[in-house]
Design a protein around this nucleic acid. Structure first.
Lengths: 138, 138
DNA sequence: GCTCGAATTGGACTGAGTCCAGTGTGACTC
DNA sequence: GAGTCACACTGGACTCAGTCCAATTCGAGC
């Protein structure tokens, strides 16, 4: 994670306590927090941090490509720090749990030119939906 | 489209002017309106229709499987009447335009058991992102 | 035509996210 | 180590999408 901070500093980011805290909160695998959850965890480490700052910082991390925005179909966007390794998502339709997955195959190659409508296609996002073991047991 | 109305009547739907108007608005290929757009078009045909009714009706159409909810990453959900033929979406990252696409390949088969984390996977959704010809020209 | 339960209304409410003017503070310079 | 200043942060008001609810209306079976 400290390499993230390094990279950010290298990009001319002014390092502030708030940004450091947000970066620390977004650490680990299978982490997919909403902005509010990030805020809640950040407040635990730095009580004065404001919601607006969390949104700003997340937005910057996304435009820098260090964090991915994941729009499952729940209301709130989620933020995924695992941006350095391409992956897709498996979402529980009941509880909303999210896992990172790595399907075989290359969906990019599966879209014939005739189906591109003149678009310059740059990215694919695959979302598997199902029911997680916890919810299936309940 | 009138077959949609037929199917709905067959399912015991009480046929009201409001529901008919919403069903009429959602007609055609590559139609992906937000709830507010549906409401605006419905109002043009039936001025007294309320937002709540449009939301209710869209929600019912979704649970009946006659219409799909599409969550691109814009704020508002979009509604896709083309639910009878499986397809995926190609979204313009700049203007938000959406096209229905039919990739070859079967992404469902591309997710090995080891990557399913015990989930019962029932559905896949593939979203291609890129830039549409209009935005590329601008 | 009557009846009754389902559908509609519209206005208040919620939750997620954005905006902005004023204040604070990293980091560069000396 | 102090001074400077542009960039970052704050918090409160605001927007926008969507939900809720009590009162009213209305479709369709009799």
């Amino acid at each position: 994670m400290s390499d993230l901070l390094e990279r950010l500093r290298g990009r001319g980011w002014r390092m502030t306590a708030q940004r450091r805290v947000v970066a620390e909160v977004l650490d680990g695998d299978h982490v997919h927090l909403t902005a509010d959850e990030v805020h809640a965890r950040a407040v635990a480490k730095l009580p004065e941090i404001s919601r607006a700052t969390v949104y700003n910082t997340l937005g910057e991390l996304v435009t820098l490509g260090e964090v991915l925005e994941v729009a499952t179909d729940k209301r709130a966007k989620r933020y995924d720090p695992n941006a350095h390794r391409p992956h897709h998502h498996l979402v529980c339709a009941q509880c909303g749990a999210i896992r990172d997955v790595h399907p075989t195959g290359n969906p990019m190659a599966d879209l014939p030119d005739s189906e591109r409508f003149g678009f310059t296609v740059s990215d694919v996002e695959v979302t598997y939906r199902g029911v997680c073991p916890n919810c299936a047991a309940a």
